[in-house]
């Protein structure tokens, strides 16, 4: 995909460095938080929240999803729906048991 101009690519690389810094800082934050020994629920919520931000940064910029084609979005949205079903429904089954 060499449709991008030299200037654009240079700008993108600067963004990559910024994202890198953000990821490193967030890693330290999440490790730091774990030393606070918050209640389990809060710890899970916070850890997943930070991980989601980090994950979104990687997906959006390193995997350049931020400027991707509709077809890729469609595939990923479909996948995310089934992903959520796969996580939630067995858990729902666990909590809604007879006996």
């Amino acid at each position: 995909m060499s449709g991008h101009s030299v200037e654009e690519i240079r700008r993108e690389t600067r963004v990559y460095i910024l994202v890198f810094v953000a990821l490193a800082v967030l890693t330290l934050v999440t490790v730091g938080v774990s030393y606070l020994h918050l209640s389990f629920g809060a710890a899970v919520g916070l850890a997943l929240f930070i991980a989601s931000i980090k994950g979104s940064l990687v997906a959006a910029f390193f995997m350049h999803l931020i400027s991707e084609r509709r077809l890729v979005y469609a595939v990923l949205i479909l996948t995310m729906i089934f992903f959520v079903a796969l996580i939630l429904l067995p858990l729902g089954g666990y909590h809604d048991r007879l006996g």
Binding site: L89, G92, G93, D96, R97, L98, G99
Partner: peptide, 13 residues
């Protein structure tokens, strides 16, 4: 999970 109705599944699920 319609293959699993007899696994002690609750009514909601």
């Amino acid at each position: 999970a319609h293959h699993m109705f007899l696994t002690g599944m609750g009514t909601a699920i």
